[in-house]
Design a binder for these strands. Structure first.
Lengths: 173, 173
DNA sequence: CGATATTTGATATGGTCCATAACAATTATC
DNA sequence: GATAATTGTTATGGACCATATCAAATATCG
C-alpha cells in the first residue's frame, strides 16, 4: 500500500530508495529489506495498480483521458440510452461524484446528456461523434501501447490468466 | 477504475447495479453490458485492489490497522534503526505525509522515534514491545483470514503465480 | 383524484490521501 | 567558516470518495 500516484516528477521511486546502483564508490546506506512485504497481496496489488494507471495516463496523454473517463466512455458506448444513475452505479461511482465527471466529458463534447422523454427526471447518456472518434483512438492506443506491454512482459497466456484471477478476486473475494 | 472504497455501507456494488436477482417478476431494466471493460487490465486491477483492501480492513478490525500502517510496522521490524526518510521512501510515502502517520502509530505506542546520536537531525524508528506484539497478532490474522482466502479462491499455485506477476508489473512495467 | 413516498440529477460539505513549497535545526562541503 | 544539502515538520492545495440534502419529476396507494 502507500505508494505515490503521479510518479511523473520527483515523487518516490519505492524499490530503489537508495538509488539504483549496484555498489558504487560512496559508503551509501544499503537498501532496506522488504521482507514479508513483497509477499503481501495488498502491497503488490496496490503497487501494480499504480504502475498500470501511470502507464495508462502516459499512453493517453495525447487524448487527455483518465482511466475513469475511459471506462465511462466505454460503458456508454456499449450501453447507449442509459441514464446517469445506471452508468455511474455500474462503475461504482456515486451519483454526486459522477456529475462533475460528466460535466467534464460534456464540456469537451465527448458525450451528451439528453433529457429522457419517458422520465423527465433522468438524463440519457450518449457519445457524441467526437466522443466516438476519440474513444476509437483511445482503444487503439490502449491496445497497442498499454495492453501490448503486458504481453511483452508476461506473455499472452499469463496475461489472460492474470486478468482472470483479478476478475475472480474482484467478484468473489 | 472508479470503484468505491469502504463498501461497508450503502456505497455502490458495481457488478449488480440492478440487484442480484436472476429473473424476478417486475420489468426491471436489464443489467448493463460491461463489454471490453472486463478485459481492461487497469479496471480489473483497481477492482481487485479495492476488494482486497476492504477485506484486509475487516480482518484487521480488532487491531485497527490499515494496510499502510501494517506495511510500516512490517518494514520497521525488518529494518530497525532506520530513520523516517528511509522507511517512508521505501514505501513510496512522501516525507511530509509520513509525519502524521507516525504520529498516529507513536500515539498508540506501536513504534517510537528516537533521536539519532550520530545525526541529530534524524529520527530512528523502532517498534515498541506493544508494537511487536500487535504486529505478531496482525501477521497471524493476515495469514489465517486474509491470505488464506486467496488460497481458497485460487489455489496455492495460482496464488503464487499471481503475486509473481503483480510484482513483475510493479517493478518492470 | 390527491397525499405521500421514491427516484433522479444536482449542490454542498467533509474526510482521506497525495503532492509541493517552505522552514528551522543540523550536518556536509568547500 | 560560509554555503549547500539533509531531516523532520508545517502549511497548503488538489484529487477522489462519501454523506446529507434539495427540487423536480414520477410512482404508489388510500
Amino acid at each position: 500500500m502507500t505508494v505515490s500516484k503521479t510518479a511523473e516528477k520527483s515523487s518516490e521511486k519505492p524499490a530503489d530508495a537508495a538509488k539504483g546502483r549496484k555498489d558504487a564508490g560512496e559508503p551509501q546506506a544499503e537498501a532496506l529489506q522488504l521482507g514479508e512485504l513483497s509477499e503481501q497481496l495488498g502491497y503488490v496489488l496496490k503497487r501494480a495498480q499504480l504502475k498500470v494507471f501511470e502507464n495508462f495516463l502516459r499512453c493517453m496523454a495525447s487524448l487527455q483521458l483518465t482511466p475513469a473517463q475511459f471506462s465511462v466512455l466505454l460503458l456508454v458506448e456499449k450501453n447507449p440510452g442509459r441514464n446517469q444513475t445506471e452508468i455511474a452505479s455500474t462503475l461504482g461511482i456515486l451519483r454526486p461524484n459522477f456529475v462533475a465527471m460528466l460535466d467534464n466529458l460534456e464540456s469537451r463534447d465527448l458525450c451528451a446528456r439528453i433529457r429522457s422523454t419517458n422520465d423527465r427526471r433522468s438524463h440519457i447518456l450518449v457519445l457524441t461523434d467526437k466522443g466516438k472518434a476519440v474513444l476509437a483512438r483511445a482503444k487503439k492506443l490502449v491496445a497497442t501501447k498499454h495492453e501490448a506491454r503486458l504481453n511483452d512482459l508476461l506473455g499472452q497466456a499469463n496475461r489472460e490468466a492474470l486478468i482472470g484471477m483479478l476478475s475472480k478476486i474482484a467478484n468473489e473475494f
